[in-house]
Design a protein around this nucleic acid. Structure first.
Lengths: 229, 229
DNA sequence: TCTTGTAGGATTGTCGACAATCTGCTTGTC
DNA sequence: GACAAGCAGATTGTCGACAATCCTACAAGA
């Protein structure tokens, strides 16, 4: 018999689809931070009952992108400068760890996948699709986590990613200008293919530094504005 | 007016209580790894309907101590040696980071709390209450995370803790012998009070090493047994 | 004997309705 | 006019019942 690996078929519960829909709406900024989610309205729009919707919302609360207050409602989390700073500093540590764990496991498949994801970022950049650009950039960055062969680390990264994606989307949306066209990931990819692990770790740290500095400045500006108003 | 900080009142939804009950049952090992949770049976035992129970289970799935397969059921996660190893290696990194972040923020309240939690461990040890000993030891260890002033880090640690507590409980339960009576945390506490941050980080790393080595050996033994049977 | 098809029961997923709680407005009183 | 009480209206939390799916056992056929 030919050796063939079937991947598990998709979860076909309404709940799973609702989770995907809501997550996407939140991460792309269609649902804004602080906004309340009205169960009845959403369930009618989606043509489902409130039961699977509520279960889906419970999942997203635990995922950290919704917050719930009993008898008051469920809300999209607020983006504070502190949150971004916290996520940022932790990300630095995790990145270093992920690169270390991944380093010995790199193989041709890793390099191919790296190129594939890098290409996806470049394509989104050319298409000026900022939402997709954020998505693909995070996916490129996430490869070292998927390859590190540490399920707990991967979970942690994915939780962080949700928030980061939300922050970046908000940022892009606010400044509303095309993203730099040059390829900022060129060096990152090259170093991950190279032989100097320390250099890769150092660059990863500095690279996310740049992205975050902008984000932080934006978030701080946001808070100043809202505290004035 | 006198300055008085009121803590938020308890969440009085059935869901929240169910979450607490189930979590405790899982972390203390009353619900064993791999075991299936029958919704109807549990809801009847708790005298609640399946709706809040299912929502509670969704939360625990996201928390990482339950796993769900559509139309098949929800199960307590299995404890593999790899999981423990993953959690262990990540914990080392997080510990170092937490100590670094906490270091500058230590004050008298920190030291007092450290002593309080240390005392709680010693008391549980004297009382030969292994479940409580695990709980208090993890709480002692968690102080640096609470003090690090990084909400994302704290969340991550708490997720890890759930699993660790489960693993340790299982371990204790299996070997079923009183825990060492000597105070293994003495040095840890002393170093956290001292002036040498590097030394504290080094010790934290070596300290959890000891605990985990035992745990890993146990888990590997478990897997050998089950793969034979 | 092994495989395949088929009921039957058990369990999970979903629905619509009711109960509990919160919010905002109105009303009455001072 | 200020303030408290109380009354809708809306929203969340919970319930019991139905629909969809899965697992088991058993029978039929190659």
């Amino acid at each position: 018999m030919a050796k063939l690996d079937f991947s598990p078929i998709a979860d076909t519960t309404r709940r799973a689809e609702i989770v995907a829909l809501l997550r996407r709406a939140i991460l792309t900024g269609q649902l804004e931070p602080g906004q309340k989610l009205n169960e009845l309205r959403i369930s009618e729009q989606m043509r489902v009952s409130r039961a699977p919707l509520r279960e889906a919302m419970r999942e997203l609360v635990q995922e950290g992108i919704l917050t719930s207050i009993p008898y008051a409602g469920t809300f999209v989390i607020d983006v504070t400068a502190k949150d971004i700073d916290d996520a940022y500093s932790l990300n630095k540590v995790l990145d270093e760890f992920a690169i270390e764990r991944t380093w010995k496991l790199r193989d041709q498949r890793f390099f191919d996948e790296l190129d594939r994801r890098h290409e996806a970022v470049k394509q989104a950049t050319r298409a000026l699709d900022t939402t997709r650009q954020i998505e693909t950039a995070l996916q490129l960055h996430g490869l070292i986590y998927e390859w590190a062969d540490n399920s707990v680390l991967l979970e942690t990264w994915q939780r962080l990613t949700s928030r980061l994606q939300m922050y970046f989307a908000l940022h892009q949306r606010a400044r509303n200008e095309p993203v730099p066209a040059e390829d900022v990931h060129e060096t990152y990819v090259r170093l991950l293919k190279g032989a100097d692990m320390r250099a890769a770790q150092r660059h990863a740290r500095e690279h996310i530094d740049l992205d975050f500095e902008e984000l932080l400045a934006y978030a701080r500006g946001l808070e100043q504005r809202t505290s004035k108003g």
